[in-house]
Write a protein that binds this DNA or RNA. Structure first.
Length: 378
RNA sequence: GGUGGGGUGGCCGAGUGGCUAAUGGCAGCAGACUGUAAAUCUGCCGGGCUUCGCCCUACGUAGGUUCGAAUCCUACCCCCACCA
């Protein structure tokens, strides 16, 4: 039910197959983010047609609205949302970071001031797991303490130690729940430790000491640290990660981040950028970023990305897309979101094929050269 | 024809003697966004240049008052409302 097999490797890059209760995921793979039980603005069929194999939901947001009790009463997140494929839920750990201005952290958990109505909300490792269990995701994430990329060694150690203690509690509660419904959901731990190599190793060791896992996530990256630092952290961890488990780089990334992550052995990614940038009119192509509102597209009859097979690129012109954005028609946001998701999914699928035929690194080199050829898109 | 109101940068619209190249908003242009408090945010937006500064041209038109005017005065042109 929670199986991962390695289908092939090419240097440090990997291709695998992850089996989950609601379906299989061929890796490397990008997971679109559906924070509130929907990939923002999109119909589940559009997400599926873009090639998505698994999407994310969020514990904190679904707990606030509509509440896990509602979701459970409606048959769980899959039934409720109409997305019948695999789902992973983030634990709310990211909100400890992103909502730091309106939360108070203590050893037991985190008290939030709801961003919706100001009411007091509390998340602990146990409650996060209970919520995720009620939501019914295929993969639950441990409740972690995420810190900014600039955090000091002391702060990073403190957060890492807490993440370890919270992991034990997350695991205990999840084991208890799993005893009542075996095979429903698996729990993945999250490596923390900031930008500090020794702490990253210590974090991983602490996780491996605390039990058997079906997958391991690397968190706390792309939170303000330079990209080379992120690469170094992944490189430092890769040789020590269990070979037979999927490696999930949380919250990453942009197209080049997928390439760099895959090159360093990452199997799974998720990122809001595809949909957020899509809504904001920024599209990815093999030649770098395109500003969909840009004046140069005014009379451009061509597709957003000539090589893309998505519902946006096979039917609509750049001129029309620009018009939709300028006129603030929602369709524009939807179409570019679909394109960006498709772009990352096609990219990860191509990477998989290249790993399997042993040409990944040469292909990646060419991909980088082209993506960055028009100046620096990132 | 009479009376009243008004003409400000692409548009709308503040400003009634110096702190005004001129508040705002819109439109336009460029950029940001990484486990979603984001259909959001930031910058530019009269022209030119050696652009953390300098120079030119600017508030209907033409004159005038003043050290100094978008702001005051005179004439003219135009617009709107009402009255004939």
């Amino acid at each position: 039910m929670f199986d991962f097999t390695l289908d092939g490797t090419d240097g440090g890059a990997r291709a695998g197959t992850l089996v989950l209760p609601h379906g299989i995921v061929q890796t490397p793979c990008f997971m679109p983010v559906g924070t509130r039980g929907a990939v923002r603005g999109l119909h589940p069929d559009e997400v599926l047609r873009a090639g998505a194999q698994i999407i994310l939901g969020n514990t904190y947001h679904l707990h606030l609205r509509p509440g896990e009790d509602v979701v459970a009463a409606m048959g769980g997140l899959h039934e409720f949302s109409g997305w019948k494929r695999p789902m992973l839920t983030d634990s709310g750990g990211f909100q400890v970071f992103s909502l730091s201005a309106m939360r108070r952290l203590d050893e037991d958990g985190v008290s939030f001031r709801s961003h919706i109505d100001g009411s007091a909300r509390r998340l602990t490792p146990e409650s996060s797991i209970e919520i995720q269990w009620a939501l019914g995701s295929d993969v639950a994430m441990a409740f972690d303490h995420l810190i900014p990329g600039q955090a000091s060694h002391d702060d990073a150690r403190d957060a890492m130690d807490r993440t370890h203690r919270w992991l034990e509690r997350s695991r205990r509660r999840h084991d208890e729940l799993s005893a009542t419904g075996p095979g429903r959901q698996t729990l993945w731990p999250i490596v923390q430790g900031g930008t500090h190599a020794d702490l990253r190793r210590a974090s991983l060791d602490g996780i491996l000491e605390r039990g058997e896992w079906s997958g391991i996530a690397i968190g706390g990256l792309s939170v303000g640290e330079p990209k080379p630092v992120m690469h170094r952290v992944i490189e430092g961890l890769a040789p020590h990660l269990p070979v037979d488990q999927p490696r999930y780089l949380m919250g990453v990334g942009f197209p080049d981040d997928l390439i760099e992550g895959i090159a360093r052995g990452i199997d799974l990614f998720d990122c809001v950028a595809a949909t957020r940038n899509g809504r904001h009119g920024s599209a990815w192509t093999a030649d770098g970023k395109v500003n969909v509102r840009g004046a140069t597209l005014r009379l451009d009859p061509g597709p957003l990305d000539a090589e893309c097979d998505c519902e946006c690129c096979t039917r609509f012109s750049r001129s029309y897309l620009r018009h939709l954005f300028v006129a603030e028609e929602q369709l524009g946001q939807r179409l570019v979101s679909i394109h960006n998701i498709r772009f990352l999914l096609h990219l990860s699928a191509t990477a998989r094929a290249r790993v399997l035929d042993g040409t990944f690194h040469a292909w990646a080199a060419e991909w980088r050269r082209r993506y960055f050829s028009k100046g620096s898109p990132e």
